[in-house]
Design a protein around this nucleic acid. Structure first.
Lengths: 251, 251
DNA sequence: CGCGGAATTGAAAATACTCAAAATTAGTGG
DNA sequence: CCACTAATTTTGAGTATTTTCAATTCCGCG
């Protein structure tokens, strides 16, 4: 097929418009009035498309932009001195990437696309400028950062004192509720990350994740087909995640 | 002994003054000029003294203030649905408490004094007001929040893929460098928290901590006397923390 | 001096890991 | 579209690290 320029191909060059973005109720402009959204639009840079496995930013790179995810899923991970990595989060549409880089002016982790996706570049200097003029934006930005702190504390709780089974239940329920918040099914969704990524995130091995999936399947908690998961007993899973209910290793 | 009012007892009623505080180079006013520090002083509320084990705030309480530690050590912890707790951090003089509460207007964790201490109450509404007028303050506040995010990511790395020995080495080296930053000895310091607290924080049991201490002692890495620790081979410990060096379980 | 909480130590048990092999899936090129 | 190869996932068996349970010891404090 001959190469043909299509309008879509220019999307990379387009400036983003929050007003027209389907994520604006979840993302940075949440709660802003129209006039303030226009001012935010003036600050926001170009959109950037990423292919699966493409890196959005890398540890050590100078920090200039935050990134708002328009679509696609991402993972962020730390790399230690020994070269081992720890995934610190999976992010989806409407979520903000790069906040750990504000201190120190350099990125402290890597962000990689789990599938083809698109982000809005948000030059941080412009955003700071705007904070002085749009208090509602500043307030919401603080909430987002604070939310990230809380989220990480919950992961610490997970890694610090939950057994494998509960960790995995928390993981599934967390995905479920985030999809629900975006208007997708809370019981049926695709895992965008590999088993290895899940294991890394949860502080477990890939084999453990595989065994947990098999066990949950056998116990009728869910069905799995490749990366497609359906939660058959979300209430029970929620109880497991909360630590209220425990599930016998063998029936 | 009869009760006698002393001048010190009124300290609780005194407004704090950042300019006169020994922590102002580490704390919120870092880098501000004199005029801006005065403005910050006008916002900052009273000082509050806490006794050992006293709670500064509790999960679910409405959020009004951030707290800057003047002296004393604190711990923060999450409590899950099952009532188990996970310590998410140990804080010391010059550090800020309460940032996880900005989203949601309620505290998401408990903060407890590990020893008698004192904090400055910082009404957040007043701080927000000030942000519009003192950009340097806002910028530094963002750095502090971002630093907290990074700190937590490092704990996730610790909990997610380090063995007990390495976790404990990281813990010790972290304390060491924070004391160094405050002008104290980096090799000799008091553990302000119980073994149980250390274990909880590191995702290990109290017995494991005890065994690790004994082993490190036997291997000549450190000496312990109750809660007084002296690092005898900080370089080796640093290597262990970085994952470069490994230490045999038995010599 | 004796009580109680905290810390240490030992032995047995459990959870999750490592290693290995087989099965499934995805990607690539004919 | 199919076949082949590489990558990912599943499953099994044995092992290792850390936990659990139990018994002491240590230390501060009344």
């Amino acid at each position: 097929m001959p190469y043909v320029a299509t309008p879509q191909l220019n999307v990379n060059a387009l400036k983003a418009s929050c007003a027209g973005c389907s994520m604006h109720q979840l993302c940075l402009p949440m709660g802003l009035d129209d006039a303030d959204i226009v001012r935010l639009d003036e600050v926001i840079g170009r959109r950037r498309r990423l292919l699966r496995d493409e890196r959005l930013y890398q540890m050590g790179e100078p920090f200039r932009n935050l990134y708002a995810i328009r679509f696609g899923h991402f993972k962020t991970y730390q790399v230690n001195a020994a070269g081992e990595q720890q995934i610190t989060g999976f992010q989806m549409a409407g979520e903000l990437l790069g906040m750990d880089a504000i201190s120190g002016d350099r990125h402290h982790c890597d962000a990689v696309a789990l599938e083809d996706g698109e982000v809005c570049e948000i030059p941080f200097s412009g955003l700071e400028e705007l904070f002085g003029h749009v208090p509602a934006l500043l307030r919401h930005f603080h909430r987002i950062m604070s939310q990230e702190i809380t989220r990480e504390q919950n992961v610490m709780l997970l890694l610090g004192n939950m057994r494998a089974e509960q960790r995995f239940a928390v993981f599934l329920i967390n995905l479920s509720s985030r999809y629900a918040a975006r208007g997708y099914s809370s019981t049926s969704f695709q895992l965008r990350m590999s088993r290895e990524d899940i294991g890394n995130y949860l502080g477990l091995t890939i084999e453990s994740i595989s065994r947990l999936l098999s066990r949950f399947k056998k116990q009728g908690l869910l069905t799995v087909d490749k990366r497609e998961v359906t939660l058959l007993q979300p209430v029970l899973l929620k109880a497991m995640a909360a630590g209220t209910e425990q599930c016998n290793p063998m029936t």
